[in-house]
Amino acid sequence: MFYDALIGPFTEFEFMRRALAAVIALSLAGAPIGVFLMLRRMSLVGDAMAHAILPGAAVGFLLSGLNLFAMTAGGLIAGFAVAILAGVVSRSTGLKEDASLATFYLASLALGVTIVSIKGTNIDLLHVLFGNILAMDDQTLLVVAFNATVTLLVLAVIYRPLVIESVDPLFLRTVSRAGGPAHLAFLALVVVNLVNGFQALGTLLAVGLMILPAGIARFWSRDLTAMICIAVIVAAVSGYAGLVLSFQTRVPSGPAIILVASGLYIVSVLFGRVGGVIRQLFPGRHLEA
């Protein structure tokens, strides 16, 4: 019975296997990015970026219909434009990054909604907003896996400056010029992963598989490497459990995945080893030293 519920769907249906592969690829790349977003206090920046992608995807959709390549390319262009413009404006004027990003993403979102409203049906719009991981074809899966691979490679290159810039930006400025490029590359990775999550979870939930696992990991470890590993595992488990839940109950797959992750988040807030509520209420007797 357990076999039927937990493994059966994947041995029986190819679309479930593809969805599982996609969600694991998304977890491997997206969760580490999410950890850095959180540690750099940019969680909501990720959310804003997700909205900023919309007009690009919409233009792609206008030009070639529901074609993932066109929509992905459009999303990437729009996302990069907003990320880089916001980054450049804040670095050259001293305006805080969140403030300049808010301006650009609002403009971008307004443009996106305008474009979608010119052409397109409600079903298309639903697909754009919430994604459909169960409709993933081989080509799309390859694109997702490719993006995930590139993300991990680039992250390996910028890892050190990214960490140092997060802890002590002034120090990095005095020893190296890598801080600015590393930050821009990181923003680019955020965009790539949002677009990546877009087919599976839609523009509105794509950031969920990045931020929620990162938030969960924060409750279980004080070590960066461990946090990244925990986040990846949590993301993959949420993805798998969400797919099973969606298969058994007809809840749409994207929301199912995010709901599972949210459940894990609540458990972590309550029982987390690092700063969890229970731990704070009952810390045990104080130590000798």
Partner: peptide, 25 residues
């Protein structure tokens, strides 16, 4: 120093960043 003290990094790793010129990326 504009250090983000909440960042999960150990004393060893933090001090090690002083070797940046030798280690680079």
């Amino acid at each position: 120093a504009e250090i983000d003290r909440s960042f999960p990094i150990s004393v060893f790793d933090f001090v090690a960043t002083g070797l940046w010129r030798a280690t680079g990326l």
